[in-house]
Simulated assay, not measured.
Amino acid sequence: MGAAASAPIKAQAKPPTGRILKEGILLYCETQGEEWKSCQFDLYEDGTFDWSFNGRFPEHVGSVKLKAVADQISVGKDCEEVPDCPEPPLGLTINYMMSYPHNYPKGTRPTDMKNNWIVFKDDREMKEWITALEDALHVKPLGVQSKPKKAPPQPRVPIASQLAPLEIQTEDPDSQADVQNDQKKTALNQNETKELQHTDFRLLLAGGQAMSRYSEDNMPHFGQA
């Protein structure tokens, strides 16, 4: 016969530090099939969760650093998804249950971890303990995987800033000189044209006067002998 597979070795929990955030008697079940027993639970501000029978420390049962297993804590109906979930005690429902594993070395598969079970007697007790656990673990809400954070909204960029800057065309000094020369040439041409027009007009006027004198000299003079 082959040797049975050995259970994962639990990690040794360090002594708790800081003050106690919450303490009280809760019903505890170590594994499926065992009876529920009353245990003294102490929650420390460093996230240590201690429990013992017959008051504090007389018969120490266990100690867990909950911060190391916060993502594996199940509350209420989620306990149904945890392997070897025990039946709740008579008169209570799974809605008041909570499961949490022992501390194991890094790399241990969750399916190989042994879970512990507690049950709260009513809504008020459950709310008080869950609130204390959330404060110690800095997790809200406990037992619900955190959703990925949305990317922060990008600031709106003014449309004007997205446009390419206008390029102001600066005229080349040489081109400006060419334009000025062209303007001077045009003015000279206009003056020459005006001068030619004046000359033609003077010639035309002189010719007209000459023709007038010629006509007068050659016209017959009626009435003269």
Results as ranks from 00 to 15, higher is better:
A68Y: 08
D217G: 04
E35N: 12
R202K: 15
K147S: 05
G33F: 06
K150L: 14
L204M: 08
C39E: 06
Q224C: 01
S146G: 05
S38A: 12
A160S: 05
T93V: 03
P173R: 02
D50L: 15
N116C: 09
D71K: 13
L188A: 11
P155G: 01
Y96W: 08
K67I: 13
S175W: 08
C85H: 06
Q209V: 15
L163Y: 02
R156P: 00
R156F: 01
T48Y: 11
Q145I: 09
P8L: 07
G76L: 04
Q145H: 07
F222T: 10
V64I: 15
N218Q: 03
L204C: 06
Q162C: 06
A164F: 01
C29R: 02
P105N: 02
T170Q: 11
P16Q: 08
S175Q: 08
M113L: 01
L205I: 06
K184D: 11
P110D: 07
N103V: 00
T17M: 11
K147D: 03
V119Q: 03
R213H: 04
G107K: 03
E195W: 08
P173V: 01
M219K: 14
D46N: 15
I73T: 03
D50E: 15
H102T: 00
H60W: 13
Q197P: 00
Q145V: 10
T131S: 11
D174F: 10
P152K: 14
P16M: 09
